[in-house]
């Protein structure tokens, strides 16, 4: 498995137009980023399109990655997730029934996979545990499923403003925990 330093090196070389380094970077990271696209978009053809756009952007923007401000995987994951969310938002027609979008995503990982995931999640896993479960779920829904305030309000059957007020409170609580 590629280490953080390996990925930083591949990104640095990609920034200088090194195609072989770009291919190594793709081999080391594309499965993770494709998993994220599938999770966010919940549609294979769209996830494939998104992954292409992501690596085109990585090639073009690798020079903007600066070591020390982001870890390389954080940078790649953030870029992939944001691009997939943009595609999701562009696709969604207003008023579309959100229940249709949740056929695959609600499958929870088994206990073993959940334990592994938790160890990789870092501090945010422990800090989410300090929140009420449905609020932690809402934050995950926004990050991994691209849910909007409107989606979240519909799911929890509260007005949008109420949803926003309590999600913002939860985010501040989360921040307090993460900064401890």
């Amino acid at each position: 498995m590629a280490t953080r330093a390996d990925i930083e090196d591949m990104l640095a070389r990609t920034a200088l137009g090194d195609r072989a380094a770009f291919s190594r970077l793709y081999n080391a990271t594309s499965a993770k980023l494709f998993g994220i696209c599938l999770r966010v978009l919940n549609n294979r053809a769209e996830a494939e399109d998104a992954l292409q756009d992501i690596y085109v952007r990585i090639w073009q923007k690798a020079g903007r990655y600066s070591a020390g401000t982001y870890s390389p995987m954080t940078w790649l994951i953030t870029l992939a997730r944001n691009l997939a969310i943009d595609k999701l938002r562009a696709r969604r027609a207003p008023g579309q029934d959100i229940d249709e979008m949740h056929d695959l995503r609600d499958a929870a990982p088994g206990p073993e996979a959940a334990a592994v995931a938790k160890s990789e999640m870092g501090r945010i896993a422990d800090c989410l545990d300090e929140l009420e479960p449905e609020r932690a779920q809402a934050i995950k829904g926004a990050y991994l499923d691209g849910e909007t305030y409107r989606d979240l309000a519909a799911r929890h059957d509260v007005p949008v403003n109420t949803m926003r007020t309590w999600l913002r409170r939860s985010l501040i609580k989360l921040k307090d925990c993460l900064s401890r």
Binding site: F34, R39, Q52, S71, I77, P109, A117, K118, I124, L144
Partner: peptide, 27 residues
């Protein structure tokens, strides 16, 4: 930046999936 870094931890629960080979060629 800090939120991006903290939230990226949430991606740990997403299983990796190998993309089809033709994607790299298309890129």
């Amino acid at each position: 930046r800090q939120w991006d870094a903290d939230l990226a931890g949430l991606a740990a629960e997403v299983p990796p999936v190998a993309p089809p080979r033709r994607l790299k060629k298309a890129i």
